[in-house]
């Protein structure tokens, strides 16, 4: 199968393993999210994939058109590093042409594509401006263009959304989806799990250099998270809290309740069991967010309630 395979890579700095026996594969045409908190080892993994640092153990393979290679396929890979930057005194178009040239894209082709991309990001007026005249967000867009201008088969994006406003984030998300749809293998990293979980087809959660959980987003959620119900009502009765469908019930505010359903209990069953005549102001049923799952697993279930609270209510209430 085409895509990117990582086999048991390990990197030790000093006496700590920053990345410890990490394996995953990013299938072609899909988006793999390497997610984890700051300092989890995401950038180190990406740098090892990009051949910038050598793993102490393990290997990285790139397969395209059925051919498996070990070294980084320079012409067919696109990379947006975490450390952002562009030559400050160079002009936007010149940098794009130079970087596309390094990927063996003829100048005429590169010029046309660059113009199209700049227009897409609303930067057409900046093509002949110097980079130092761009805002941070604009520079990030130019960097993104540089990473994908050569229509790479492999796209590696390290924290592509950090520092972007919500509108630009959506723009990036749409373009990343389009890249995967056109057949590229996309690997991106982020520490903001809730923000990218909807974007990724595959998830690789990492903490302290080790895999926490990985796989299909839905599978993970099924595996690790029972349904949650957030309810806003005035006419609630205490005895309901003790129903056998609920694993955990809490009153969060005067009128706000949250239930975590027992394993195997379907949302519909729970809703049907609600007392008749209940005055529902708001009702939200959801799987826990990736963040909650992460916190649960990484901290051995002893999650900080307030932390979980904010994230799930923030997302669904």
């Amino acid at each position: 199968m085409d895509g990117l395979q990582v086999h048991g890579i390990r990197k030790v700095y000093g006496s700590t393993a920053v990345v410890d026996n990490v394996s995953f594969s990013a299938p072609q045409g899909r988006i793999l999210g390497v997610l984890g908190p700051n300092g989890a080892g995401k950038t180190t993994i990406i740098r090892m994939i990009m051949g910038i640092t050598a793993p102490d153990q393990g290997e990285v393979f790139f397969t395209s058109d059925g051919v498996k290679t070990k070294g980084v396929p320079f012409p067919t890979i696109g990379y947006l590093p975490e450390e952002r930057g562009l030559y400050k005194e160079a002009k936007v178009m010149n940098i794009l042409l130079f970087l596309a040239g390094l990927k063996n894209i003829p100048k005429i082709v590169a010029k046309e594509r660059a113009a199209t991309w700049l227009k897409k990001f609303g930067l057409e007026d900046y093509a002949h401006r110097k980079v130092e005249q761009l805002s941070k967000g604009m520079a990030q867009k130019v960097q993104f263009i540089a990473a994908v201008l050569h229509e790479p088969k492999f796209v590696v994006l390290d924290e592509p959304f950090s520092g972007l406003d919500p509108v630009s984030q959506d723009l990036f998300k749409a373009e990343i989806r389009a890249l995967a749809k056109s057949g590229a293998t996309v690997l991106l990293s982020s520490h903001q799990m809730n923000m990218v979980e909807a974007l990724c087809d595959e998830i690789f959660l990492i903490h302290k250099g080790k895999e926490v959980v990985s796989g299909h987003l839905e599978e993970i959620k099924e595996r690790f998270g029972n349904f949650r119900v957030n309810l806003l009502t005035r006419s609630f009765q205490e005895p309901f809290l003790k129903t056998n469908m609920v694993e955990k019930a809490e009153q969060l505010g005067e009128e706000r309740y949250r239930f975590i359903l027992k394993e195997g209990i379907k949302p519909l069953e729970f809703v049907q069991a609600l007392p008749p005549g209940l005055d529902i102001r708001e009702l939200a049923i959801s799987r826990p967010s990736l963040h909650d799952i992460f916190v649960n697993i990484a901290q051995g279930g002893a999650s900080d309630e307030g932390y979980v609270e904010n994230s799930s209510l923030g997302a669904y209430a």
């Binding site: 740098r47 910038i52 990379y79 400050k88 990473a147």
Partner: peptide
């Protein structure tokens, strides 16, 4: 200018 990594991907 933080360009090294980008160049080193080519």
């Amino acid at each position: 200018d933080r360009m090294a990594e980008v160049i080193l991907s080519s």
